[in-house]
Amino acid sequence: MYYQYDGSFTGFLSVIYEAYHDGTSHVEGIENISAGTNLFDEEKIISANLDKADKVLTGLYHKCGAQTAHTLYYAFMAEQPEREMLLFYFICAAFRDPDTLAKGKADPWIGQVESWSLKTSNECHRMLGLLRFSELEEKILYAEIRPDHNIAPLIAGHFAKRMAEEEWAVHDLGRHIVVYYDKERILTANVTEQEKNIKYSPTEKKFRSMWCQYYRHISIEERRNPKLQRSFMPEKYWPYLTEMSKVS
């Protein structure tokens, strides 16, 4: 049996739920519906269902612990090609043996899932530092990012705690996802059109140039080391960093 789902984590877990009830040995493939291929006759389209997804995740959590559930989520969010079947394998292995993750490296597939999850975590941590907000009209804070992995939903909690009294939005330009916080809740939405006409607050420019000024002056000329700088702060992040953009 081939399953199709909407590409979301909830959708994916719903597939797992269905597959479990259909009998897991039938699973021949799981694919993202947006991939568009429709080659197979025996296809089952699964819609994302929160309750079903929740059952799977809670089950995994109780049986194997938080670390395994976390690894699954983060590995999924790494958005690697053909992640579905490998993650399906991971879940089956985990339900069979709750210690699967601990044994880790011995099984190259489990190791692969773990390394995806680690990649996502690393980028999350990096982005907590490298994300830059700009103040728009009406004091909304707005950040543009273009991460390798789908981390916008994962870092939102950090900012919600830290800036609980601010209204802010993080826009993943590559995935067309906006995570928005309205001082109470975190909401995630797909955006089709890109806002070209961003209106900044009157003082935004001033603080940006202050930051650039500070950034230039805090460096010690005698210790200049661009290679080292680049190794910590890869160039792919520069276009969205206030201090690295040419016009300040």
Partner: peptide, 27 residues
């Protein structure tokens, strides 16, 4: 930790926000 109505909190392991041209972390 952040307080009600407040801004900010500490990150126990620290966060680097940028690196200057000498390769030092700016936190």
């Amino acid at each position: 930790e952040n307080k009600p109505g407040g801004i900010g909190n500490g990150a126990r392991s620290g966060i680097c926000h940028s690196w200057s041209a000498d390769g030092r972390c700016i936190s």
